[in-house]
Design a binder for these strands. Structure first.
Length: 448
RNA sequence: GCGGCUAUAGUUCAGUGGCAGAACGCCGCUCUGUGGCAGCGGAUGUCGUGGGUUCGAAACCCACUAGCCGCCCCA
């Protein structure tokens, strides 16, 4: 029989790696709670239109990287092959619905915000999520077709203060704290403002105008970008074009008074909090919904991520709710690439000494007649909060010792003598010592 | 989606046309209630998949699949 393998770009997470995932998520949840965030869980698939409108029809994500499908029932229905009256199926004129596995989660969160009329509550909504996202890209280290994001969104009606630069600074300060708490070393925060929904078109027009006469001097990649997505020319890494790029108009010069003041306040608040950042006028974001503040946390080369050195990114999206047919609800959010975060932490941990994780005790029954007694003892000790593995009475004692030494800090022998005398032999592997302990004293002895 | 590199034991890898290998790990014995150390022994396997060249292919060629690196883009 041919073996069935995981599909390209997906992966299985096994112990002990999952332990690190859980640690990251637990740390994150605890921290988010301190900042007043509540968890939201949105569906893993949504109406395709949500991403087309929210993320942007012209973005790479929507135009070529989405997992889009139409359920077989809907296909049959739209093809008129389903009669409709049998089995209570929907009538044939019901339109086939195009669905898409979410390529990111902000659109889904804002959709839920609109759908549940959270704007009418009137207060700021602070929501976080942890879950898988899907993009059909060429897989690489730190870049998978099913990847996990930890994200959060702060949004609310204009009067809730959702638009305040304080929110931007709070989110950024929280992220800096999170990376520190997780033990990520050497991170860098890049910060920019890409202007309001009115600033951006003005700047874009000026950028196109500046690009037009020099376009033919650019490398082919950047010529194409100049056409399709001029903003991306700005963060091109190609050294051959740097001189030309330097001379292009700068977004900072096109911010209106409000946007400039907003950005200045964000930076002032960050400085007050002691969060280091780099003003990066080249930092643009790929998704259509971003306005004003945009940011990215990266780690240095050689930190285990290859060229995928962005750990997380985000920004403000003051017009997204309206783009999705909702009320005015400015907001700011971010998404952490959890896979990348884990890779970075693993790469760091490799440079340090790995910590062995062992169970409290291994219980070794002597002979199959002691199996039940061993299991009962394990049950008691586990109930007392200890982590326990049980051996197998058919195995020779030597084998029990070998197995126990690999798995646990201590071993308890359960043989006829022990059960009869109520004195159990406990071996402490680290100390190489052995002692006899009564049943009532066992839990205590195994904790030391 | 484009370009490049790679795929051999559980793991890390050697093997450039002629018997499928090493280290570590695993199992057994020395050792029937005392592990770690040591000695001896054992199994490691569709050589990624399919086709082709050849007397003969793990090796050469082609395709496919997957991983990695770079690009595009992005978390």
């Amino acid at each position: 029989m041919a073996v069935i393998l995981k599909v390209r770009g997906t992966r299985d997470l096994l112990p002990p790696e999952t332990e690190l995932w859980n640690r990251v998520e637990a740390t994150t949840r605890a921290l988010f709670a301190r900042y007043g965030f509540g968890e939201i869980r949105t569906p893993i698939f949504e109406d395709t239109q949500l991403f087309a409108r929210g993320v942007g029809e012209e973005t790479d994500i929507v135009s070529k990287e989405m997992y889009t499908f139409t359920p077989a029932d809907d296909v049959g229905r739209s093809a008129g092959r389903v009669t409709g009256e049998s089995a209570g199926l929907p009538s044939r004129d019901e339109k086939a619905q195009s669905l898409t596995l979410r390529p990111e989660n902000t659109a889904g969160v804002v959709r839920a915000y609109i759908e549940h009329k959270l704007n009418d509550i009137g207060t700021l909504q602070k929501l976080f999520y942890i879950g898988p996202q899907f993009r059909r890209e060429r897989p690489q280290r730190g870049r998978y077709r099913q990847f996990w994001q930890i994200g959060a969104e702060v949004l609310g009606p204009a009067w809730s203060g959702a638009e305040s630069p304080l929110r931007d600074a709070e989110v950024l300060e929280m992220l800096a704290t999170l990376l520190d708490e997780l033990g990520v070393r050497g991170w860098q925060l890049d910060l920019n403002s890409i202007g309001s929904t009115t600033d951006r078109p003005r700047y874009l027009a000026a950028l196109r105008a500046a690009l037009a006469p020099i376009k033919h001097q650019l490398t082919p990649d950047n010529q194409r970008r100049a056409e399709t997505n001029p903003l991306r020319v700005l963060d091109s890494k190609d050294p051959r074009d740097q001189a030309l790029i330097e001379a292009l108009p700068c977004i900072a010069d096109f911010l209106d008074e409000d946007s400039r003041s907003h950005f200045d306040q964000v930076k002032a608040a960050l400085t007050a909090c002691g969060v280091p950042f780099r003003d990066n006028p080249r930092l643009v974001r790929g998704l259509d919904y971003y306005t004003r503040t945009t940011f990215e946390f990266t780690i240095p080369d050689g930190s285990g991520l290859g060229t995928q050195n962005a750990l997380l990114g985000g920004g403000r999206y003051d017009g997204l709710s309206e783009m999705l047919g909702g009320p005015k609800a400015p907001g700011i959010g971010f998404a952490i690439g959890e896979d990348r975060l884990i890779l970075a932490l693993e790469a760091q941990a490799e440079q340090e000494s790995p910590v062995e994780r062992k169970l409290d005790a291994f219980i070794a029954p002597m002979g199959i007649s002691q199996n039940s007694a061993a299991l009962v003892l394990a049950r008691e000790l586990r109930a007392a909060g200890l982590s326990i593995e049980v051996g197998e009475g058919a195995f020779r004692l030597k084998r029990s010792f070998e197995t126990a030494d690999k798995l646990a800090h201590r071993m308890v022998i359960v043989g006829e003598d022990e059960v009869a005398s109520d004195l159990f032999t406990v071996k402490h592997f680290s100390r190489g010592e052995q002692e006899k302990v009564t049943r009532v004293g066992l839990a205590e002895a195994l904790r030391r």
